[in-house]
Design a protein around this nucleic acid. Structure first.
Length: 404
DNA sequence: CCTCCACAGGAACTGATGGCGT
DNA sequence: ACGCCATCAGTTCCTGTGGAGG
């Protein structure tokens, strides 16, 4: 290694040139990477294939519902098998069209339908991204499937979010999707729903359930040992030999397994830890690196969610941080005074309670309902992140100069 | 045993935005 | 040009509630 330079940039460049390299292939340490073989999921793969097989015989397969916690490989398996099926039929005259959409990424019902449409080949002109009635969008989707004689497979990830959107707007799109085949003469439509929430079925319209739930597949959580195997597979491809200590690997699997067997989290941990170790010029990843990675991932999550909030939510978070009286009333008065100093129109208490519960969902604060007898009912909130993170994140924002 | 607090949180509505079809 | 539609942030009005204190 070259002599230590004082300039940190020079030092990093030096290290990159001559220093220790742990990572051979960074992409493999990303959970979006699709490995050739999916570990521990043989029977699930068989089940998925089984229910989709009719497509090869030119008839409509059963609709499919896939359950499993995050990071159990649901999406991976479904995508993999569908693409295999697609490559099988590629040469035949029988067109299969795979459509994938994640309900969480598309925040509105309209957006989701449009994303389906885009993948079916409708451009901005044929399907504008705003302005139409939802029933009109739906009509156009069916029209293109019909006129191109497509056999479409709609994969709807996180379908529980979609169900939630639907119940908010009152449009029963899911029902219409399941019944779409009756309106199609030339093509067909198959639904594959993927859900994280195992109780989601109970909230579903029974008419939808009867056709969507024709087949059900449950992905169980990974055990710690299974996660370890998955990690080993990736380590072998992505890292140099002996890049990770035995204990660190154990810790990594344990940390991810403890939650609910989330392989995605395990891989994230590994990637960040290896980056840290590499930067530190260590010859291997040890337990501390894993712990630091865990912390860093947490902090990153906090900072990005802090930054992404609109102005009034930010003010509210600062109010929670600065006040000691953490009942809703207390927070609200604190919030009002902050609004005055920042010269912002204050919002109603109703709105504020709503914002507070939204922030609570993201995990930055936690709330607990407390009954104080004659003193009524309140929700007491508590900051779950360190005030320093907040100050650090907002320190460049001129709006908050006076209140931090 | 009843009362009454201090809010929680649902429902329905408003007004603005942006863009369609005709 | 006009009416219509979806969406979003926010408001208004509302009903509901566990238990301390009388």
């Amino acid at each position: 290694m070259s002599i230590m330079t004082l300039d940190p940039v020079e030092r990093m460049l030096d290290a990159a040139e001559n220093g220790i390299t742990l990572i051979k292939n960074r992409d493999i340490l990303h959970y979006t990477y699709m490995p050739d073989t999916i570990l521990h999921r043989d029977s699930e793969q068989e089940q998925v294939t089984q229910s989709l097989i009719p497509i090869l015989k030119h008839s409509r397969p059963s609709n499919l519902l896939v359950y499993g916690k995050p990071g159990t490989g649901k999406t991976l398996v479904v995508k993999k098998i569908l693409s295999k099926i697609q490559s099988r039929v590629e040469k035949s005259k029988f067109p299969i069209k795979l459509i994938y959409a994640n309900s969480k990424e598309e925040t509105t019902l309209y957006g989701l339908l449009v994303s389906f449409g885009r993948q079916l080949g409708l451009n901005e002109k044929e399907l504008p991204s705003t302005g139409l009635a939802i029933s009109e969008v739906f009509k156009r989707l069916l029209k293109i499937i019909d006129s191109n004689q497509l056999n479409a497979v709609f994969v709807i990830d996180e379908i529980d979010y979609l169900a939630h959107l639907i119940s908010k707007t009152g449009k029963d799109i899911l029902y219409q999707l399941t019944r779409a085949n009756e309106r199609l003469t030339q093509g067909s439509l198959t639904l594959v729903g993927i859900s994280n929430d195992l109780t989601f079925k109970e909230r579903l319209d029974p008419r939808v359930l009867s056709s969507l739930g024709e087949e059900e597949i449950v992905f169980t959580n990974y055990s710690v040992e299974q996660i370890r195997k998955i990690l080993e597979g990736r380590i072998e491809q992505a890292l140099v030999k002996n890049a990770i200590e035995e204990a660190a690997l154990n810790l990594c699997s344990a940390m991810a397994g403890r939650e609910h067997g989330d392989a995605r989290r395990a891989i994230d941990l590994l990637r960040v830890a290896s980056e840290i170790a590499e930067r530190e010029q260590k010859t291997s990843i040890n337990e501390d690196h894993i712990r630091m990675a865990g912390q860093k991932i947490e902090e990153n999550k906090e900072v990005t969610s802090l930054q992404s909030y609109p102005l009034h939510e930010k003010i509210l978070i600062i109010a929670v941080m600065k006040t000691s009286e953490l009942s809703t009333g207390g927070i609200y008065t604190a919030y009002k005074t902050l609004c005055k100093t920042v010269r912002q129109q204050e919002l109603t208490q109703r709105r504020v309670t709503q914002m507070l519960s939204e922030i609570e969902l993201s995990g930055l604060i936690t709330g607990r309902i407390i009954h104080q007898g004659i003193h009524g009912r309140t929700k007491k909130y508590k900051l779950t992140i360190s005030p320093n993170t907040i100050k650090e994140t907002f320190k460049d924002d001129l709006t908050f100069e006076d209140i931090l």
